[in-house]
């Protein structure tokens, strides 16, 4: 039984210009200790999905089962008993901390709200958390504005793990940070995962970061999961045309490869989630689109191994191999990028 199990989840918003189908029927399981990456471009619903899991946004349909408890329809009070199991790290290290509260207070707040321990026990826990995330102990009485973005993100991480959650949802948790600081925070997240046995739902638009941290990766496009696979498998053989394009668009850190690799530049812009195209939602930008793709929505089908894909053009052959649309072998960069020289 998965730790977190999401079934047919839908989250729609009414706006003056129509209904936004932000999350439109998503199935996803996260196991204990597993890190699932969720990638996609703006408007694909990845952030909404993260917030719906915490019921910060109320889903319209579907179920969220957390640790064998269906929390989809729990009343506030009952939900509060399960809140501590899933926590969140936010994107913006500036907006996510109350500027008027001290760092000590910010980290202690979740403990106080959930009636955790005595005053002294809480203080001890806060001190322990500060040390865990690598902040100096004199931080307690300071205010967030005295810290840089990276250190603020450490405060946010301490707050998220204060209640000993089982799952932490990292919503673009390192996207706003500078490169050199981002590496520090990614390393901190992996260390905490290994030490505390956390599961992560790691939401990011940055494929290289997801590739580094995730065990399994979901690709979302306009409210739907189009492909889901174990990390190595996905990078070795991206099946869905959108996954291929997304990967090809990621800048590579080698000028020679960057010059040589064949560009698959997607046509057009992202369609608006207000009016998603019918059929396969990607057909308007897909270089391989067939008439069928316009008319019929492809379901997310499991293929051999732990890879599922929602594309009409991906087929399992009689001999067990998989036929999928692709430009050419050289289209996608292979894993032959060497590390930076010492």
């Amino acid at each position: 039984m998965a730790l977190l199990s999401i079934r047919d989840l839908m989250a729609h918003f009414e706006t003056p210009r129509g209904t936004v189908y932000a999350v439109d029927g998503v199935n996803l399981d996260i196991g204990s200790g597993e890190t699932v990456g969720l990638v996609g471009e703006s408007g694909c619903g990845k952030s909404t999905l993260g917030k719906a899991i915490l019921r910060l946004i109320e889903p319209n349909f579907g179920s969220i089962v957390l640790d064998s408890v269906d929390i989809t329809h729990l009343k506030r009070r009952q939900l509060a008993r399960h809140r501590h199991k899933v926590q969140m790290i936010f994107q913006d290290p500036y907006a996510s901390l109350n500027p008027r509260a001290t760092v000590g207070r910010i980290i202690e707040e979740p403990l106080m709200v959930n009636g955790w321990g005595s005053d002294r026990e809480r203080k001890e826990r806060v001190a322990w958390l500060l040390e865990k995330v690598g902040l100096p102990t004199d931080s307690l009485k300071r205010h967030p504005h005295e810290y840089s973005g990276g250190q603020r993100q450490r405060i946010g991480i301490a707050r998220a793990i204060a209640l000993n959650p089982k799952i932490v949802i990292c919503d673009e948790a390192v996207s706003a940070l500078d490169v050199s600081i981002r590496a520090q925070i990614i390393n901190l997240l992996t260390d905490l995962r290994d030490e505390l046995g956390l599961s992560y739902l790691f939401i990011s638009h940055d494929l290289s970061v997801v590739e580094h941290i995730a065990d399994r990766v979901c690709v979302m496009y306009l409210g739907k999961i189009v492909e889901i696979a174990e990390r190595e498998r996905l990078w070795a053989m991206p099946l869905h045309p959108y996954t291929q394009i997304l990967m090809a668009a990621v800048p590579v850190l080698d000028p020679k490869i960057a010059r040589e690799r064949k560009k698959i530049i997607p046509r057009d812009e992202l369609p608006s989630p207000l009016n998603p195209p019918g059929g396969c939602r990607f057909h308007t930008r897909c270089p391989y689109a067939q008439p069928k793709c316009r008319d019929e929505e492809p379901p997310l089908r499991p293929l051999q191994g732990r890879q599922s894909v929602a594309c009409h053009l991906v087929t399992e052959q009689a001999d067990g191999s998989i036929a999928y649309p692709t430009m050419a072998a050289e289209a996608a960069p292979k894993n032959d990028v060497r590390g930076a020289p010492a």
Partner: peptide, 20 residues
């Protein structure tokens, strides 16, 4: 360059310590 995640490299990222 060391702190950029690269495909196929498993190890910890090489971070630059300290703050800007």
């Amino acid at each position: 360059l060391g702190s950029m995640p690269r495909p196929g490299l498993e190890e910890r990222l090489r971070e630059i310590p300290g703050v800007i």
